[in-house]
Amino acid sequence: MTTQVHEIVARPRPADAASLAAWTIAAQVVDPEIPVLTIEDLGVLRSVNVTSDAVAVTLTPTYSGCPAMDAMRDDVLGVLTTAGYQNVSVRLVLSPAWTTDWMSEIGKAKLREYGIAAPTGHATVRSSGPAGPISLKMAVKCPRCSSLNTRELAHFGSTSCKSLYECRDCLEPFDYFKVL
């Protein structure tokens, strides 16, 4: 059950009931650019800790410059204060760096249903040394017709996290959530 292991490693839910309740509320916040994905699906929500007089939430930014992070942070504050929590603080923590490997299987399924191809394979940072101009890539499956006969049109797409593909069978262009 690799999925379970993945989820335990990437998104440990709080053990205590008070923190878990706040987590459940914070986990409703969605990515403003991809509103089918919650911050829990994305693996952006890392911890929620409720003490007697405060709530501390930790998020991990996706891309360094992603403007959606500000919206997600504000939305976490919003839902928790609306739910009656006082003294809510949100920290953005860079380390360990966010990776698409943290996206849940549920999240990937939602992405496909939404028309965005989910990240294929696992993130690796190419080691230092000679940069091969051609990098080996796994085929990206068309979210519309499931064909693997697709090609990248542009590596940088409508947001930092996506690249633009087209399907050579159904001829539709589509976004691909690229591996990071």
Binding site: R46, S47, N49, V50, T51, A54, V55, A56, T58, R73, L77, G78, T81, Q86, N87, V88, S89, V90, R91, L92, V93, L94, S95, P96
Partner: peptide
Amino acid sequence: MKADAPANDHEDAHGHVAVDVSTLDAE
């Protein structure tokens, strides 16, 4: 975690809310 950190530096429409936008120290 730092639940005991001062969290009421700013008071605005959200109530007592502190946004530590870039606490970059490793977890």
